[in-house]
Computed example of a mutant assay.
Amino acid sequence: MPILVTGGAGYIGSHTCVELLNAGYEIIVVDNFSNSKPEALKRVGELTGKRFISYRADLLDREELEFIFTRHRIEAVIHFAGFKAVGESVRMPLEYYMNNVAGTIALCQAMAKFGIKKLVFSSSATVYGVPEKVPISEDFPLSAMNPYGRSKLMIEDILRDLAVSDTEWSIGILRYFNPIGAHKSGRIGEDPNGVPNNLMPYITQVAAGKLNRLSVFGDDYDTPDGTGVRDYIHVVDLAKGHLKALEKIFSSTGVEAYNLGTGRGYSVLEMIAAFIEASGMELPYTIVGRRPGDVGACFADPTKAGNELGWTADKGIAEMCEDAWRWQANNPNGYEEESIRMEQVRS
C-alpha cells in the first residue's frame, strides 16, 4: 500500500516514516529539503532496514509532482511539507502563503487528477488562536495570530470545502500541540535551522554549550509558577497518531479534525527541572518579559482522538527529555556533521 509522504525528511515526517515502514507500509517521500536534510532519510532506512523511494521536489513544481503520481500507484497522502516558523512567517508572509497554501492546493489538484482522495494533513494548535479556556477541544472557535497559523487555518478551510464539493474525499486533519523528544536510537531528531524557535531544542542547545542561556518569557501568567504552560507530546507518539489517522481515512469519508496532545500541561520551569533531572546537565536561564501574543496556558483535550482513532499518547515528560538530550548529545551539529563527513569522503 504505497503512501506518499510530503516533507518526509522533516522532524515529524522522518519519525512518521519510521513508524510507517515498521508497520509494513510502502512509502514514497517528497521533500525539497528547504528546512530538512537528506541525511534524515538515510537514517530512516538504517533504523528500519527498509528501502524506499524519495524525490527532491517542490509541491509547486506541478510537472514533477504529476510525474511522481504517474510513476507510483499511490493510495493515500500524508502531508507535512510546509514552512513552520512563527516569527519568520511574520517577516515573510507572502512566502508562507505561497509555500503552504498554494503548495497544498497544487498537491490536492494532482491527487484529484489521479483519483487519490485520501489525505492526512499536518495542522497545528495555532488554529485556536488565544483560547478562552483549557483544555482545548476540536469544537473551539478557530482563529490565528500570525501568518503561519493563518496558513494552516486557510488550508483546513480549503480541505473542508473540498470534502463538501466531492464526497469521495476522506481527510484527517491533525492539530499538533508541542512535539518534542526524538527517536530512542538518537539517530533522528529535531534539527532546526539557525537559532531554535521552540523550547526543547533551545534547552538542549544551551545544555550542550551551543547557546549561552535560556530566556524564559514571562513569569507573571496565571499559572502555578507564573510561566507559560504548554502540552508537550513525544514525537514518536505523534508519529503513531498519523498511522491511526491513516487507518481512519481508509474506512470513512468526509473530513474530521483531531487534537494530538497529552491533555497535560507543563510550565517552562517544570520543563527545565525535568530536563535537568533527565540529563544531569546544568541549564542557566533568565526570566525576561512576555512575548507579544503568547498565552498563559494551552493544552489539549485529546478525547476525540482517543474515541475515534483509538490513539493516546503513552510517553511521559521524563522520556521526552531523555530522548531529546540523547539526540542532541549524539548529534551536536544535527545532521550537518554527518553531511560534511560524507562530502569529505566523496572529495
Rank of each mutant, 00 (worst) to 15 (best):
H79D: 06
F80N: 08
F80S: 10
G82E: 05
A85N: 13
A85R: 14
V86A: 00
V86H: 03
G87H: 11
E88K: 12
S89T: 00
V90G: 07
M92E: 15
P93I: 01
L94P: 11
E95Q: 13
E95D: 12
Y96H: 10
Y96Q: 02
Y97L: 00
N99D: 07
G103K: 03
L107C: 09
L107F: 09
L107S: 06
C108D: 02
A110K: 05
M111P: 01
M111A: 03
M111S: 06
A112V: 00
A112S: 13
K113I: 10
K113S: 11
I116C: 00
K117T: 09
K118G: 04
S124R: 04
A125P: 03
Y128Q: 03
E132K: 12
K133Y: 08
P135V: 05
P135E: 00
S137Y: 04
S137W: 02
F140L: 03
S143L: 04
A144M: 08
N146D: 10
N146K: 08
P147C: 01
R150F: 14
R150G: 12
S151R: 03
K152V: 00
L153M: 06
M154K: 09
I155M: 11
E156S: 05
I158R: 09
L159C: 06
R160M: 13
R160I: 14
R160A: 14
L162P: 08
D166N: 13
D166T: 06
W169C: 07
W169F: 06
L174G: 07
L174R: 07
R175P: 09
Y176W: 12
F177Y: 11
H183V: 02
K184H: 13
S185P: 02
G186D: 07
G186A: 12
I188D: 11
I188T: 01
I188C: 05
I188M: 02
G189W: 02
E190Y: 15
D191Q: 00
D191C: 10
P192A: 01
P192F: 11
N193F: 15
V195H: 11
N197Y: 15
N198L: 14
N198A: 13
L199I: 09
L199D: 09
L199R: 04
P201S: 05
P201N: 00
P201C: 05
Y202P: 10
Y202S: 15
T204E: 03
Q205W: 14
V206D: 02
A207Q: 07
G209A: 07
L211Q: 04
L211S: 08
N212C: 13
N212R: 15
R213H: 13
L214I: 04
F217L: 10
D220K: 06
D222C: 02
